[in-house]
Design a protein around this nucleic acid. Sequence first.
DNA 1: TCTGGGGTCCTGATGCTA
DNA 2: TCTGTAGCATCAGGACCC
Length: 466
Amino acid sequence: MDAFFASAEQASKPSLRGKAVVVGGLGPRGVVATASYEARVFGVHSAMPMAQARRLAPNAAYLVPRFAFYRAISEQVMGLLRALSPLVEPLSLDEAFVDLEAGGAAWDDASARLAGSRLRADIREVTGLTGSVGLAACKMLAKIASEQAKPDGLVVIEPGTERALLGPLSVRTLPGVGPATGDHLRRAGIHTVDEIAEAGEDELVRLLGKAHGHALYAMALARDERPVVAERETKSVSVEDTYDVDIHDRVRVGLEVQRLADRCVRRLRGAGLSGRTIVLKVRRYDFSTLTRSETLRGPTDDPGVVREAAARLLDSVDTTGGVRLLGVGVSGLADYTQEDLFAQAAGEREDFAAVEDADEAPAEVPAVPVERRWASGHDVRHAEFGHGWVQGSGLGRVTVRFETPDSGPGRVRTFRVDDPGLEAADPLPLVAWRPDEPGASGEPGVGGGPSVGGESAVGGGRVRAD
DNA sequence: TCTGGGGTCCTGATGCTA
DNA sequence: TCTGTAGCATCAGGACCC
């Protein structure tokens, strides 16, 4: 999907269409999750500190992410992909690989192109948003093709043209080459994909280590045998918080770690999992990050056990100077627990259920009831003026723009934060539901047909946003 | 300027065990 | 019984991805 979060917000809010929109954390230490193409003109991009984005684009609209809303759209798109093939590998909310050959949706260049075009049309019809499609014989090339296709396009890399296409591109084009590896290669005089191939496999292994060296050399030769994998097992579950202001108080640090441990266990249980290895993550005032871990004798999803382990790990960490981030994670996952084996801990589980409810409200802001905190960008409904969204709030006032996805740009009104007519609302669908629309019945209008086979290429169609 | 959150994978050091 | 070692598990850190 193209600039997914920002595009979804623009589709949801007519007054933002054609305007610079930045979605991300709005606190003093927030970063940009997605910038609309209009905001990118000012130099704003993903992962940029929000403070820097505000300097570059002071007049842009700044919104907090609404993951539940994006997830609902994502599920619509993934439904369209699964109608093309049983082999769909989601990479994130807005991106997935599809093995078109496995689904019989494509068996040669022409049929792949047709399937890709229909998919893009269906995405637009069902979600109202644009997606880009890259078609190629392997995942790496499909990913590169989809990057080139953005925004709102389709690019096919035809078999036989791969090496010529990749050769002159920057090493940073290849997946797995980030800033550090890119620098490493540059210092060795390697700037392009061709130069990786020329350097030879042994030299790359010497420079980057065994796994990375072999993989990168293969990719430079356009070789990528990785299959599209529909079901991926979760390997770890973690939660972390960055604090607006560094925490110096050791007692407070301990309490935060306990809170994070509880949140982590809640996520773990929500996924029906347990784990053996407890990981504590601490980012200190100077941004140095350290992790400490402890492996238990058996897997657990017991909040008391995770809290205790996290507290023990914290004992071994020097936090003088302050911490800006704390995290707790669990890995070494299983779908049973040590406690299950010994049929114990039932009482403690019930205790924890009560804690879960109590923990729903963020602990930091007890002064204002949850329903009276109006988050920027979130939907609301007013008894008199109808559906709208929060444009801003502060000093006891909340400013709301009244508009819906299928209205024109709406009017702005300001209310007291405790206005009795104002309440939080769910997002409205971006495209009004119609019974005959593709996707509504689970049968998108993209032809399937039995696999013809014979063609060696796997059609990897990717749809992605950032 | 000051750098999120949730993940995956890899590497090297170290210690245990057969 | 002692010693060297291969292999594995654990731990910590780093790079990368979206």
